[in-house]
Design a protein around this nucleic acid. Structure first.
Length: 761
DNA sequence: ACGGATTATACT
DNA sequence: TAGTATAAT
């Protein structure tokens, strides 16, 4: 009986793309409409047809011209074209709005595609029974069909016979809830949908298609045999392709009804164990696949075909399209980062030449257009370039995946802040506070500035599950709330015997500091003037590897198309970036990226004798400046990484400078060499310092780098923080991804994603 | 040489 | 793991 335990819905938007267009232009409503995808060829490819057009015989598989022939008055809405490719973002956003409504009913939602979602509403149904809120009549199922019986019979059956037939009562209640869900979807989004209600995903999906549009269908389990009676094998999800054909051929059957005649052993003669089992079960209407709780995609990609004569043959062709695609991916990844607080760690470049297609993976270390482009291009060049330098590429694609949660700076910052307070609290009798707060840049009693507070508030609003207020409540006295890896560390940190002269990181690490993190990025900021950015750069220990791109003679700027000398390339990109960030931060008026750029120019013009080659920018840097130079890159990468954080941020309560018009700032930037910039410049203080000051260095046994003695503690802290950061991430990820999430976790995930959604709408 | 663009998953 | 094949919308 367990296979009838669940109540599963499949909700499918009716001709979704058409509805999106109709809602955007209500004039279209009621008229025959199809959505076509660019392509000049024969009027474009149809990807959606509304019902008035279907009535006139228009189908998908037709080209736009065919549709016009069938139905001269048809309106063909074109998918917008961006960068020479179809731009589907309109429909993606619409799908997200629908998903948000669905999610308000249950977090057990699996987004199957842009216009389809499975919901497990077992809990909702059972709650209604518990609350005795389970009265049903035909009026509560106004748009519902039942497979194998009339509504009237079905309702009568479940109302008269409750105890006898509880599974059908649940289905009926599922139907009622589904009516409510669909009504809500329409109310909020204006979109209509159809639905299937059954005990599992495959059956829900199957019956959803029986009555469309704007209707829903319930499948009582006992109606499965008659439904299967003359149902083609390929109608079942998973049997629509080659495997289904195999089943038909090997078993010499046509309909699902015939499949149940085979024993599992007989099936096992023809198919592997898994397939045999699947067939045996689905033949009886059994499918135990859970509704996975996922509403965001696991990968983000774009691709394009270049069929036949349109195949890409020259380097320039390839470059052009890869450039466009890198742009698109970049844009979508950034948006995704803002919405979902995660970063893709891997990219896959796909291509096809002749008949064969292939794909190569490449690490994705940072969201930078030119890197995405260059890596993709290198892969294509290596795999597709013929001896004579030509190509014949018929398909190109870039996708990004392997997402990992990005622990935001503020979480970590507040974590350490709390931690530090804790240490100080515990040691207040024995410690000279003034001293200790100067020992480590983390122990910053002035950290609670307006800006920082706002950031925290803002963050916590966006992410109610932030570790600072949940998993790492350091002010609480119990250790047991702390998860595994971290748990062992905390008692040490909390112990009241931290020597005043040591930062707590140093203390933490003094015992086990022989791990090599293989990083070259550390920030040696040794001044007392701690501000928010200081914490940020230390705390965000992005694990991107340094990419040592072999630079060509001239490089095309992906932003403005200019051809640049390789020595200028980095600076040039920084320049573009500076403009972008400046825009974003202009209203805050407390950061001016020009400092970065100006500094870069200074370094560029330095004499380059007797130095080391920077693995980031390949510049030759004088030995004594090497560390600082790396720090510089680190700082840049942090700011880039977090650039989006400065968008949509609430204004500080105390505005130090009046809000500036974006355009003005951008223009101003070009004219003036430098304005009234402040905090960022602090990053580079010790560039100068180093020059004039000490040459005393020591080898760090974490990274084997030479570190000035005065910076060793800070450097040490960096490694400690990095390690802790990694551990936090690991601990976070131990939360099970799907299925068995606790209710609290599900709710949290819901809120988080909902917030992400709301932010964009 | 045409249903294009995405996404997911399972196998090896 | 990376790469490929398959399936679905």
């Amino acid at each position: 009986m367990s296979y009838t335990n669940r109540i599963v819905l499949l909700i499918d938007m009716d001709c979704f793309y058409c509805q999106v267009e109709e809602n955007l232009d209500p004039n279209l409503k009621g008229k025959p409409l199809a959505v076509v995808q660019y392509n000049q060829w024969r009027g474009g490819g149809i990807i959606a047809v509304n019902y008035p057009a279907r009535e006139r015989g228009v189908t998908r598989h037709m080209r736009g011209n065919d549709a016009k022939e069938k139905c001269p008055e048809i309106i063909l809405a074109k998918v917008p074209q961006v960068r020479g490719k179809a731009d589907l973002s309109k429909y993606r956003d619409a799908g997200k709005r629908v998903a948000a409504v669905l999610q308000s009913f249950t977090p057990l939602l699996e987004r199957a595609s842009v216009d389809e979602a499975y919901l497990d509403i077992t809990d909702l149904v059972e709650k209604r029974i518990q609350d005795q809120n389970d009265q049903i009549n035909v009026d509560s199922l106004p748009n519902t069909y039942i497979v194998g019986s009339s509504i009237e019979d079905f309702v009568e059956n479940v109302t008269q016979n409750k105890a006898f037939d509880e599974t059908n009562l649940k289905l009926a209640l599922g139907g009622v809830i589904c009516e409510e869900i669909r009504a809500e979807v329409f109310k909020i989004t204006g979109y209509r949908c159809s639905a299937g209600i059954a005990h599992n995903k495959i059956l829900a999906k199957l019956v959803c298609g029986l009555h469309k549009p704007n209707k829903q269908t319930i499948l009582p389990q006992e109606a499965v045999p008659e439904l299967y009676q003359n149902l083609r094998i390929k109608k079942i999800t998973g049997l629509g392709g080659k495997f289904g054909n195999n089943v038909v051929e090997k078993l010499n059957i046509e309909f699902m009804g015939e499949l149940s005649k085979f024993t599992q052993r007989e099936l096992a003669k023809h198919f592997d164990e898994k397939s045999a089992s699947f067939l045996y079960q689905i033949a009886r209407g059994i499918d135990s696949e859970p509704v996975n709780t996922r509403l965001i995609a696991k990968s983000i990609g774009c691709s394009k075909n270049f069929p036949g004569k349109t195949a890409l043959c020259t380097k320039e062709d390839i470059e052009h399209w890869l450039d466009e695609m890198a742009d698109e991916i970049f844009e979508r990844l950034e948006k995704d980062f803002e919405e979902n607080n995660r970063k893709a760690k891997q990219m896959v470049v796909s291509f096809a030449q002749d008949e064969i297609s292939s794909s190569k993976t490449h690490p994705l270390n940072s969201y930078e257009k030119h890197k995405i482009f260059e890596n993709a291009f290198k892969i294509i060049q290596k795999n597709c370039m013929k001896d004579n330098g030509s190509y014949k590429v018929t398909f190109l694609g870039i996708s990004a995946g392997n997402f990992q949660d990005h622990k935001k700076v503020n979480e970590i910052t507040s974590f350490f802040k709390n931690m530090e307070n804790r240490v100080k609290k515990n040691t207040s009798e024995t410690l000279d506070k003034k001293n200790s707060s100067k020992e480590s840049i983390y122990s910053n009693t002035t950290l609670e500035s307006d800006i920082d507070d706002n950031n925290l508030i803002f963050y916590e609003q966006m992410h109610p599950d932030s570790i600072s207020d949940q998993n790492f409540e350091v002010e609480s006295s119990s250790d047991d709330s702390i998860s595994g890896d971290i748990g062992g560390v905390l008692p040490d940190l909390q112990s009241p015997k931290v020597p005043a002269a040591q930062s707590f990181f140093s203390k933490y690490f003094s015992g086990n500091s022989n791990r090599n993190f293989n990083t070259s990025k550390a920030l040696g900021n040794n001044n007392d003037d701690n501000n928010f950015e200081d914490d940020q750069q230390i705390m965000d220990l992005s694990n991107e590897e340094i990419e040592n791109s072999d630079l060509n003679k001239g490089i095309k700027c992906p932003q403005c198309g200019k051809i640049l000398k390789n020595t200028e390339y980095q600076s040039h990109l920084e320049y573009h970036f500076a403009i972008g960030v400046n825009k974003d931060k202009a209203h805050q008026g407390n950061i001016n990226i020009e400092d970065y750029h100006d500094k870069e120019m200074v370094l560029t013009n330095e004499e380059t004798n007797c130095g080391m080659k920077c693995p980031q920018c390949s510049k030759i840097v004088k030995d004594f400046e090497y560390q600082s130079h790396l720090d510089y890159h680190f700082a840049i990468s942090i700011v880039k990484d977090e650039a989006h954080l400065y968008k949509n941020k609430p204004e500080p309560k105390k505005t130090t400078s009046p809000p500036t018009n974006t355009k003005t700032v951008t223009k101003k930037r070009k004219k003036e060499a430098s304005g009234n910039h402040k905090p960022i410049g602090e990053y580079f203080k010790n560039c100068t310092k180093n020059k004039n000051q000490e040459s005393l260095t020591d080898i760090c046994n974490e990274c084997n780098k030479q570190i000035p003695v005065s910076e060793q503690k800070i450097h040490f802290d960096y490694h400690a923080a990095r390690k802790l950061h990694l551990e936090i991430n690991v601990a976070q990820r131990k939360i099970p991804e799907k299925g068995q999430k606790s209710k609290q976790q599900r709710t949290v995930a819901t809120q988080k994603n909902l917030m992400g959604f709301l932010k964009t709408s």
